[in-house]
Each structure stands twice: as C-alpha cells, then as structure tokens.
Write a protein that binds this DNA or RNA. Structure first.
Length: 593
DNA sequence: ACTAAGTTGCGTGT
DNA sequence: ACACGCAACTTAGT
C-alpha cells in the first residue's frame, strides 16, 4: 500500500486525538457519502488500518430519498429517478468491490447523524472516517457528528479528497475571500498536492465487518424497494453509475491522446448525443465521487507529458477539472451562495415569478424545439452538453423569460445525474449574469510592442485603445439564440427529432422554427403548431430586447446603490419595468397593425 | 483616480 | 473559415 501526502488530511487533523488514535485493535467506521469508490479514498484507507473490525456504511437519507408522488416527474422531491438509480448502481458496484476484498457495504436508513451516532455506540467504534464535505448540508450534519464523536472519545478522520485543493487553504491564501475569477483562482491555487504523490489505488484485502447487531442493516436496495416506479417513462439515462463504469469511461477517454490534447470546451458540439462531444465523466466526478479527481488529474498530466502540444485551461480538459475546483472554492467562501438575497457577490435583479412559464420551460413546452429538446434530454437522460445547459439557462433567465435563476437551479438540481451544489449554483449565477461575468479583451493586446512600426499598427493601436476603454462587452448583451445557436451545429435537427419525435417529419428548413412552416407542410408532417406542438411562448427578438433593457436598468440600480439593494428597491424597480413594458407594447401596437 | 484584466454571442459580410 | 459591428462594464489592485 502506498502513502498519501499528509496535506490531504489537513482540515480536521486537529481532531486526531493522541490517546484514541493509539487504540489499535479497535473498530472503525467508514461513512460513505460522496467518494463511492475504493481507489484513492483516504477515509477508507485510514479506516482499514484498524486491527479490529471495519464497518463500511452508507445511510439512505429520507431528506433526499423519500418518494414524492406530487413532484413534476418520478422521484423524490430532491432527486429524479435517474439520479437515484445512478446512486443505487454506484452503491452496488462499491458493495461488490468491497466483497471481493473481504468486506461489504452496510446500508442503513434514517436521519444520517442519528444513524451514525447509533452505529458508533452499538459497534463500539473508536475511529470514524469520512470525507470532508463543503456543501452546507454536510457542514451542518458533520458538525453534529464530530461534536458527538469527540465528546465520547471517538477519533474522527475527515480528509479533503473530493477536490484537488482544500478550499479553506485557497481562501486563506487569498486573504480570507474566495477568488472571483478563474484566472486569479489558478494563480492562487498553483499545483495541487496530488501532482507528485502516489495514490492508493487498491488493496489486497480489507478488515472484516464485525457483528452488526440489531441496527437494521440491509443490502443495497432496488428502486422498487425504495418505493419508486420506473415504468412511467420510455427512455432513461444511458449512463450507468459506479466506480467500475467510471474507470472504464476514464480509460476510454484518455486512450485517445490526440483527443485529450486538443480538447477545447467551447468547440464541442452540444447537439451530439449518440457520441457526446465531452467525456461524460462529470456524473462520476461531481455528485458521487465514483472517480477520484486526483486520479483523473494524474492521468491527464501523463497524457500531456506524452504529447508535443496540448490545449490549456480554461478550455482544456484539465481546465474543466479546475473549473470544478474554482466553483467549490467560491461556493464555500460565499455567504448564501445558493440565493440571490443576502449573497454578497450576486446582482440583485427583479426577476419575474411566473409558475406557468416556469412549468412550460421545465416540461419542454416553450415552442422552441432547440430549447424543448434540451429540456427533454434533461428529463430523460439527466445529462446534457454544457453549452446546451447554457442555452436553456439563458432562455429562462436573462435571455427570454426573465424568470429567477433559483427556480431553474432547482429543476437542474433535481434532474441532473451530475448535479452538484457548488457547480450548479455557480453556473446559474454565471449564466443569469448575476456574477462573475467579465469578458476577456481580444488577443490584439499582443501587438502592443509593435505600435510604432507603421501606419498599420497605428490603426491597431487605435483599435486596441478603443477595446481597452470600452471593454470587450458585457455579457448580458450576449444572448444565446434559441434558433440559430443549435442550427450551426446541427442544421438537420437530428438532435431535436430524437428528443421531440413529434417533429420527426418536419422539414429541416422549419425544424428550429416550426411555427413558420406553412399549414400544408405542418399537415404533411403530422405536426400542427398549436395543437401537436406548442406555439412559441414568446417571440425571441422582442423578449430578448426586453430582457436586455431590464438587465440594463437592474445593473444601473445595483451600481447606484453599491450593491445595497433592499426588498423595496427591488419591488419598485420591478413595478417600473413592468409599467415600461406595458407602455412599450401599447406604443408598438399601431405600428404592428 | 487610474490601470489591468476578465472561460465559451449574433448577424452579416467576405 | 475569419473579420467586423453591435454597444459601450466592473472589479481588484495600486
């Protein structure tokens, strides 16, 4: 077995009690939450060093897992069936890996801190090991568990191993604040400690599980045993959960060295679904930790070493891994990160509350096939390409509907198999132009040293100065078109036809705008717009113009108030914007007729 | 006060 | 494929 650097254990190393940590021959409990894997799992490794029994535990938390019939799609109120299934597959895979090593996974049900406390008592555990977690839910839960454990003399080992960096350390290095731009994050973060350390990838055997007593331990349950139905939908996610699947997928991705070396995120095709344009490693990395981010990092570095030229962050594959780190750090270092109100880095914007519009977006019934197909892919697969997520998020918020990003966030959080608290919230804040939205200058800055050479460079100089003083443009003006964005990748609409079969016979010149097709064409395609497929809920040109205007006013107010905007200010602005909108419509009406 | 720098748009033209 | 006009920012650091 190979050792890890001690730095990975840092956040709670002060919990190492010199008296209890000497108690060899005692029992240990490894509590799995994320990190549903054997490889590079420091909590498991530490627990396995006990010379008594080791109890590997997973707690089924009713808070997340209680079936809810009144949700808009099958699942619990917090998770769709796709993600619950993905979790159960991950647990089964973990259980079978543990069984091969002479152990097994013990599944218990209940409020996790209650369950863990009972386990500690019943099994006379002396060492409790679980991965450190920055999500607010686990911060509160873990605090309770640690309090109890230290009060009864149980050693707690809680290493940072979900991320490459320790968010606490990065925030400290940055003077107590989370860095707000990717570039500044990279500068502060530097090299991760796993860059030159050996990771523990496997074991020859694990300590045996002791007597489990009367605590209601079970095997990994099935969907049906948990009370879910999966016969209500014809298509489900093609992605299977688990560490074995994660490692298989990783090996397949990195075996194509040229593909890894040339990976550039903004160039991927969001409409590719038969063979997605990205690795689809996110479900394995993010939510359940079936794949170690540190192992992935080392694999990428090995590939980069072997090739002459490769892309770099932010667009490279490594760049994607570091985006995850960036969002974890920012989310951990920001108060009320998942809310607009009371969030110091979030613009206060008078978003609309409109349940019907939200439901139309959520159910894939906006009347824009590109948007609806993406939302159907979310419902069916629990996964979409990153840029496809951008399109629907922009459409819901600042692009067309002007609905609150928190409501879109809730839908994603429930349905995505890779949904992750920090990354999901971070991306919604970003896409709604509520924070971190700055735009780089063009590479023309590189010509600075040539300014004096000729008239040509004088021109470039003037151009540069203009760009410099007036900036690269603010992003709320840059709206993804629900018609043309998809078209440039998939002019035939294959993606739309797969996820919206009602449009499968619509000719390709109308597939992105079926309401423009003559009635004879709609009849022939057996798809009458307004009957078989909805009419567009807003006209994009007008709606996006309206949104830009509202964003402009909201930004101006934020600037004027220096970010200190109260409920009343926001209500007044909302009223003003709505009045303006009405009078604009009134003024336009005569022209339209 | 000033400067530097910040992940990924659209429509139109060649 | 690439270039241009569009409209005309905000923050952190000095």
């Amino acid at each position: 077995m190979r050792r890890l650097p001690s730095s990975v254990c840092s956040p709670s190393s002060h919990h190492l009690n010199p008296i209890t940590s000497m108690s060899t021959g005692s029992n240990s409990l490894v509590w799995f939450r994320k990190s549903l894997r054997v490889h590079d799992n420091p909590a498991l490794e530490h627990a396995s060093k006990c010379s008594g029994s080791m109890y590997p535990v997973f707690v089924i938390d009713p808070h997340y897992m209680e079936p809810n019939q009144s949700s808009f799609s099958p699942g619990s109120s917090r998770a769709g069936v796709n993600r619950i299934r993905f979790l159960l597959e991950s647990l089964s895979d973990l259980d079978s890996s543990l069984k091969k090593l002479g152990s097994r996974l013990l599944v218990l049900k209940g409020e996790p801190s209650d369950v863990i406390l009972r386990c500690l008592q019943e099994w006379k555990v002396k060492r409790l090991c679980f991965e450190y977690d920055t999500d607010p839910y686990y911060q509160a839960l873990d605090f309770k568990v640690k309090e109890y454990a230290s009060s009864v003399g149980v050693e707690v080992f809680s290493p940072v191993s979900h991320t490459l960096f320790n968010p606490t350390e990065i925030i400290d290095k940055n003077g107590g604040k989370a860095p707000l731009s990717y570039q500044s994050f990279l500068k502060i973060a530097g090299e991760p400690s796993c860059a030159d350390s050996e990771l523990v990838m496997s074991y020859s055997s694990l300590p045996p599980v002791g007597d489990v007593g009367s605590l209601g331990v079970s095997e990994v349950p099935t969907l049906q045993e948990l009370g879910y139905r999966d016969d209500e939908q014809d298509e489900w996610t093609p992605f299977r959960g688990g560490e074995s699947e994660a490692l298989k997928r990783l090996r397949k991705s990195i075996s194509d060295k040229a593909w890894v070396a040339n990976f550039e995120k903004p160039k991927g095709d969001p409409s590719a679904f038969l063979k997605p344009a990205t690795t689809v490693l996110s479900p394995y990395l993010k939510k359940f930790g079936c794949l170690s981010s540190r192992y992935f990092y080392q694999c990428l570095q090995r590939v980069y070493k072997d090739v002459k030229k490769h892309t770099s962050p932010p667009v490279s594959l490594l760049g994607q891994l570091l985006w995850r780190e960036f969002f974890y750090t920012t989310a951990f270092g920001t108060r009320n990160f998942d809310k607009m109100k009371g969030n110091p880095i979030c613009k206060q914007i008078p978003w609309k509350e409109d349940h019907d519009m939200l439901a139309a977006w959520r159910d894939g019934k906006t009347g824009y096939p590109w948007i609806d197909a993406i939302m159907v892919q979310l419902l069916k697969w629990g996964w979409m390409h990153h840029l496809a997520r951008h399109c629907v998020a922009c459409f819901l918020t600042r692009g067309d509907l002007f609905i609150h990003w928190e409501q879109g966030r809730d839908v994603f959080e429930r349905l995505l198999i890779d949904s992750d608290w920090a990354i999901n919230n971070g991306n919604w804040v970003w896409l709604s132009c509520s924070s971190f939205f700055y735009q780089a200058l063009s590479p023309i800055t590189y010509h600075m040293d040539l300014f004096f050479v000729s008239k040509v460079y004088l021109f470039i100089c003037l151009h540069f100065l203009r760009r410099c003083f007036f900036g690269g443009g603010i992003q709320y003006n840059r709206i993804y078109s629900p018609i043309s964005f998809g078209k440039k990748y998939d002019p035939d609409g294959k993606y739309i036809k797969h996820f919206l079969p009602v449009l499968k016979d619509m000719p390709k010149q109308y597939i992105y705008e079926p309401w423009t097709a003559p009635l004879s064409v709609q009849t022939k395609a057996k798809c009458i717009v307004g009957k078989d497929y909805p009419k567009p809920m807003v006209m994009h040109d007008e709606a996006s113009k309206e949104c830009k205007r509202k964003m402009g006013e909201a930004y101006a107010l934020n600037k004027k108030m220096n970010g200190n905007i109260g409920d009343e200010d926001l209500r007044d602005l909302r009223r003003k914007l709505e009045n303006d909108e009405e009078s604009n419509i009134r003024n336009q009406r005569p022209k339209l007729n």
